[in-house]
Simulated scan of single mutants.
Amino acid sequence: MSPETLDALGVCAATLDLAQGRVLWRAPSFERLAGGRDDSVADLCRRLGGLQALLDGDAAVRTVACEGRPLEARRIALDDGRVVLRLDDRHGEAQARQRHLEDREQLLFTSRLLSIGEMATTLAHEINQPIGAAANLLRGSVMRLQRGDLDADGRNGLLQALQRATEQVLFASRVIARIREYTHSHTPKRTPIDVAALLRACVGLLDWETEREGVRVDLQAPAEPLWILADETMLQQLFVNLMRNAIDAMRGNAPGTRRLDLSVRVEGSQVEATVCDSGSGISEEAEQTLFVPFVSTKPTGTGIGLNICRSFVELHQGRLWFTRNDGPGTSFHAALPLMSANEVSAIKKEKTP
């Protein structure tokens, strides 16, 4: 094998004929590490302190010195009497590893600073969803109290609205806690979740907004649960964001034409949830920057909602995309890995004390 081939393979080696005292050949990397080109074994031993002891002794590995720099020398005896001498700069490798670790730590530190800088915008956007929902629920409750015509059904409805408002405030608290955890870990807390049940809960959270905007909501889902392993807070935020975007897209529609169609179905080994609106649709120009952070077509939009949604889906090994409807509007699809009934049972048993 030629020295060039050995060098290309990253092998820093030379072949010695000890009987004749000659260096038969060496890889270019061997010359660079040894600090020169020696044709005799004697000259090589003078250059590398401690090499003669390695060649004369029984040990196969020994530390040698080249201009004060420690190198690891390894002797490999061949059947024909020749010896392969391999050099490794362990000290240099250690320094390179240390530099790599320091560079990685600096990169992580810089990334952490950037993340912290983005938290303010992300936090403001994410808590706006549950706080807005809570405000709608409380506003509706005030209107009911002002009318003063609460019968038994009205009181029950008011109680449910206040309970939902409380849930939204608690949800905002969980969002803040999750963003705080984001600076320490990206691993979501996953539990088995029925996608259809989660969508129904999201519809309930936004019912005051859909009623105010005159949006008709329809959910199509199979009777049996379709389970995924997911972080409930992330997935709820995902669907609330998509549904609110759909409502925003239909604000220019004539009354009676605002439809929000939700569906859940199995596609192969995945659960596909779809949020479909009858709004103005997405232009080809807007499509180019649809998932780009801080780019928005809304006058007051932050441009990070869909970027957050896609991050949530990808954290769950899923995919988020959109299609244009045959009629007016747009459909957003989130595909997530489907859990089997056995997997759900096994996880629930593990968590049972």
Rank of each mutant, 00 (worst) to 15 (best):
S2W: 10
L6E: 08
D7L: 12
V11D: 10
A13F: 08
A14P: 03
L18E: 13
A19Q: 14
A19C: 03
R22Q: 14
V23G: 05
S29A: 13
F30D: 12
E31K: 04
G35T: 00
D38F: 15
D38R: 11
D39K: 09
A42P: 07
D43M: 10
D43F: 06
G50H: 13
G50Q: 02
L55S: 09
D58R: 12
A59M: 12
T63I: 15
L71T: 04
R75N: 09
L87T: 14
D89C: 00
A94K: 02
Q95V: 15
Q98V: 02
R112N: 06
L114G: 00
S115D: 15
M119C: 07
M119V: 03
T121A: 12
N128Q: 12
Q129C: 05
Q129Y: 11
G132E: 04
A135H: 09
N136Q: 12
R139M: 02
G140V: 11
V142W: 03
L145M: 14
Q146P: 09
R147Y: 03
G154A: 07
R155I: 10
N156P: 10
Q163N: 12
R164D: 10
A165C: 08
T166Y: 13
E167K: 09
E167A: 14
L170K: 01
L170S: 07
I176A: 06
R180F: 09
Y182M: 12
H184D: 07
T187W: 04
T191I: 15
T191N: 10
P192F: 08
I193Y: 04
D194P: 05
A196V: 09
L199G: 01
L199N: 10
A201E: 15
G204H: 07
G204F: 09
W208L: 03
R212E: 14
E213W: 06
E213T: 13
R216K: 09
R216P: 00
L219D: 02
L219E: 04
A221Y: 11
P222Q: 03
E232D: 00
T233W: 04
L235T: 11
R251K: 14
A254P: 08
P255L: 08
R258D: 01
L260V: 02
S263Q: 06
V264L: 05
E267T: 08
S269M: 01
C276H: 06
D277E: 12
S280E: 15
G281Y: 06
E287L: 11
T289A: 06
L290G: 05
V295S: 04
T297H: 14
P299E: 13
T300R: 15
T300F: 14
S311D: 04
H316L: 05
W321T: 01
R324W: 05
N325L: 03
G329Q: 00
G329Y: 09
E343W: 05
S345A: 15
E350M: 15
